[in-house]
């Protein structure tokens, strides 16, 4: 659990974070969202002490971070950043192995762990382990970044716009996969983005920042239905109903009966209802097929299923 108590941070004259009180709950995915320069990265970086607060205290598991040995603190915190995070002179496998090696794990255990982690993020260890970062696509590089951050199984994961350098299609895929990973691992995650859609889709709880101040901290449904200020209402936008749909997955609302629909149109099992709806509208079909990751048929989903979900309050 991560707690900020009256935390401020000044850079010269700039007040990047202004009197922040925030509690990130155990095993929840907390998304920090806000316009550029609102202090999101600064908040995140105060958790692993890449930045020290000017005022106030940050706690991890009830212990003030300043009182811990900084290397020890960081070993328990995975960190994923956009762009330059991977070490270009090391292979993918060596990148993932950095922290386990630092912890002095035996070779065999490291090798197994590296394989497991690459598989977890959907990369074939045999094909990707020996590559160098510049031989990866942007999406693959970000997957490796996640694998590296998770390698030593740290309880906390900090992610600073991890998917924002990836094209929209791949970003959606990465989000879906990351959600699936998070459902099984249940880490305490602080995730920074400036993309409201991404925030709504991923978050257990969303913290909206503006000019270094926390404006609203709530579960996505509340944020969408009861924005506490015109700023938030404006920020989440007019398409709230659609945004809510992005929190439901096809898997939970489809009809598993093997498709009687002969429509060629299909969506992925792990796609969101929002994606399913836009696929239906795009193909003028009221019912479409659902397939799993390997393109095997898994059932079908119709407009009435989506309506059912929209009427339902929670996921």
């Amino acid at each position: 659990m991560i707690r900020f108590e009256g935390v401020s941070r000044k850079f010269g004259e700039v007040l990047a974070v202004d009197g922040l009180d925030l509690e990130v709950f155990d095993r929840e995915l907390c998304v920090l969202v806000g316009p550029s320069g609102s202090g999101k990265s600064t908040v995140l970086r105060m958790v692993n002490r890449l930045v020290e607060p000017s005022e106030g205290l940050v706690f991890v598991d009830g212990r003030e971070v300043g009182s811990l040995k900084v290397e020890t603190l960081r070993l328990g915190i995975g960190y994923v950043i956009q762009g330059v995070g991977l070490f270009p002179h090391l292979t993918v496998a060596a990148n993932v192995a950095v922290v386990p090696e630092l912890l002095g794990w035996p070779k065999g255990r490291i090798a197994r762990r590296v394989g497991d982690m690459l598989e977890l993020v959907g990369l074939d260890p045999g094909r990707y382990g020996r590559r160098f970062p510049f031989e990866l696509s942007g999406g693959e590089a970000q997957r490796v970044g996640v694998a590296r951050a998770l390698a030593s199984d740290p309880p906390i994961l900090l992610m600073d716009e991890p998917f924002s350098a990836v094209d929209p299609v791949n970003r959606l895929r990465l989000q879906t996969e990351f959600l699936a990973i998070q459902r099984t691992l249940r880490k305490t995650v602080v995730f920074v983005t400036h993309d409201v859609d991404e925030a709504i889709r991923l978050a257990d709880r969303v913290a909206v920042l503006k000019s270094g101040r926390l404006i609203q901290y709530d579960v996505p449904e509340t944020l969408l239905e009861r924005p506490n200020s015109p700023f938030i209402a404006d920020f989440v936008g007019a398409d709230r109903a659609l945004k809510r749909l992005s929190r439901f997955t096809v898997r939970d609302w489809m009809q598993p009966t093997a498709g009687t629909t002969d429509a060629a149109i299909a969506v992925d099992l792990d796609a969101s209802l929002r994606d399913a709806l836009s696929t239906m509208l795009g193909s003028r079909a009221r019912t479409i097929r659902v397939h799993d990751r390997d393109h095997r048929p898994a059932g079908e989903i119709g407009l009435q299923d989506i309506e059912r979900a929209a009427e339902c309050g929670t996921r």
């Binding site: 960190y79 330059v84 070490f87 270009p88 630092l102």
Partner: peptide, 30 residues
């Protein structure tokens, strides 16, 4: 070398000397 390399190193729990020796120096030499 981009500043993010140093940060990624220390954020992984490596000490500054270790980051210098095993992350920055090999890249610089290359």
């Amino acid at each position: 070398i981009p500043r993010g390399q140093y940060e990624a190193g220390i954020a992984s729990g490596l000490g500054p000397g270790r980051v210098l020796w095993s992350i920055l120096l090999p890249q610089a030499i290359r």
